[in-house]
Design a protein around this nucleic acid. Structure first.
Lengths: 147, 147
DNA sequence: TTCTATACTTACCAAACGGAGAGTGTAGCC
DNA sequence: GGCTACACTCTCCGTTTGGTAAGTATAGAA
């Protein structure tokens, strides 16, 4: 699988270890709510993309990051980076020069989150065509049904 | 401006191993876009919760599912379930009785996705307090800075 | 003096999200 | 005849999201 080249063998092994664990049952609902909330914030499109790019490129300036992502607006990039910094996923180093220079890096926390997401990424890559086929079949069924 | 938190020697070593093991790879951007898109759709709050509940309870009717989730609106539940069915994550079995009876189950695809997400779930549970501390520190820093 | 580079920041606006609440269909019970 | 159960389905409407475009700050080059 091509996509797995993005991750180290180590990361993939870690993801598989996680995956082998049975999902936790009976959990304190307050904790559960917090975890769900955290996942909700962390699991958005741009956060994942940035996590992935920074895992690969190590250190990037704002502009280079924007370039690497390709389609993101400045506003969203700033916003996402700020949130990630607040959550402790990345570090933001400002050089007091003109024109400004700011470098972003993953923290260890960000790195481990990337590792955890690795499992989802691999799943998505492996099952892309299956999902696609399922969607097509579904759409065919529903359009027939509506006639 | 605050400057970076430093990595431990261990983390730096890990990062170096990681760097050594990860040659820059070129992935078909179309595949990448599709995967990102797929993850984006699949990684939303309700999908994850439903995945989790169905993994545990195996088979549930619409009403019981709503009850198990607790806070979801009918509209969102219907919508999320329909999308998941389209993506091949769940099956929807309709019994032609009155009043209606509909049962939902995970497919194998849905089950494996739940498994993949388990890693993120575990990460979130393990790092909840670290993220929380990071946020508090960040908020303290920024409120100081704005005075 | 004017222009350039860079990382934002702000204002504005359209689209999407998502909740509340009412409506739908119908077999069987009272 | 009227009521109930269940799984939707639809409408209205406030909130959130996210894009575009313009503005900010300032050292150094031309």
């Amino acid at each position: 699988m091509e996509i797995t080249a993005k991750f180290t063998a180590e990361q993939i092994a870690a993801a598989k270890r996680y995956a082998a664990m049975t999902p936790p049952t009976a959990i304190d609902p307050r904790i559960e709510a917090l975890v769900t909330d955290l996942i909700g914030r962390v699991a958005d499109k741009w956060t994942m993309v940035i996590l992935e790019i920074l895992a690969e490129k190590k250190t990037l300036r704002f502009g280079k990051l924007a370039e690497a992502i390709g389609t993101i607006s400045q506003k969203m990039l700033t916003q996402t980076l700020r949130t990630m910094e607040r959550d402790g996923l990345i570090t933001r180093e400002v050089y007091p020069v003109v024109p400004p220079k700011v470098e972003y890096q993953l923290t260890e926390l960000g790195f481990t989150l990337g590792t955890a997401f690795c499992g989802v990424w691999v799943w998505a890559a492996e099952n892309l065509s299956r999902v696609d086929q399922s969607r097509q079949a579904f759409d065919r069924r529903t359009s027939e049904a509506s006639q």
